[in-house]
């Protein structure tokens, strides 16, 4: 089957890839672009481990065809670091011990980033609702919510 030529920006850099029409964005970022921060767990859109930002919106990259991402601006966990400095969310996840096995972490951080970008002063309840899109099988939700809460405060000051 013919490949499709797709161009997009990923973590601030331009990328052009020839992909199969039935290739998911997750396969492309992991296997063609070697950005392995986004994980595959359920593969059916239930868990959120594969979350990336597509034009600022969190999406399940396992449910998106790369062909759909033509012209999009994509951010993966690898693109969160700016000028050698970690994002406040990454800092607070480490500080609060919000990482156990780490498999859900990249998705959690990207979902939280998109959320904090649209809600600067969230309540704890808002945070719980926002990250409920992502599943943590270690069930370490409390520290994740703590970390997002602290990052929200740090990002304001």
């Amino acid at each position: 089957m013919d490949t499709i030529n797709v161009s997009f920006r990923i973590n601030g850099e331009k990328a052009t890839v020839d992909v199969k029409p039935y290739e998911t964005l997750l396969e492309t970022v992991r296997e063609r672009l070697s950005l392995t921060g986004a994980k595959e767990a359920c593969g059916l859109g239930a868990c959120g481990a594969c979350t990336v930002l597509l034009n600022g919106i969190p999406v399940r990259s396992c449910l998106i065809l790369t062909a759909e991402a033509e012209g999009a601006d994509i951010v993966t966990i690898e693109g969160m670091k700016q000028n050698g400095k970690l994002h406040p969310l990454q800092e607070s996840f480490m500080k609060n011990g919000a990482v156990q096995c780490g498999f859900c972490t990249s998705g959690m951080i990207l979902t939280a980033k998109a959320f904090l970008d649209r809600n600067k002063k969230p309540t704890r309840k808002d945070i719980v609702k926002a990250i409920s899109s992502n599943v943590c099988r270690c069930t370490g939700y409390r520290k994740i919510v703590d970390a997002v809460e602290e990052a929200a405060q740090n990002m304001q000051s």
Partner: peptide, 24 residues
Amino acid sequence: YLAGGTDIIPLAKQRLVAPDIVID
């Protein structure tokens, strides 16, 4: 037909739909 893909892509992955073409 494909709109958001949150339903059709899982169905395709489980081979519950097997189209020759996906029309976005």
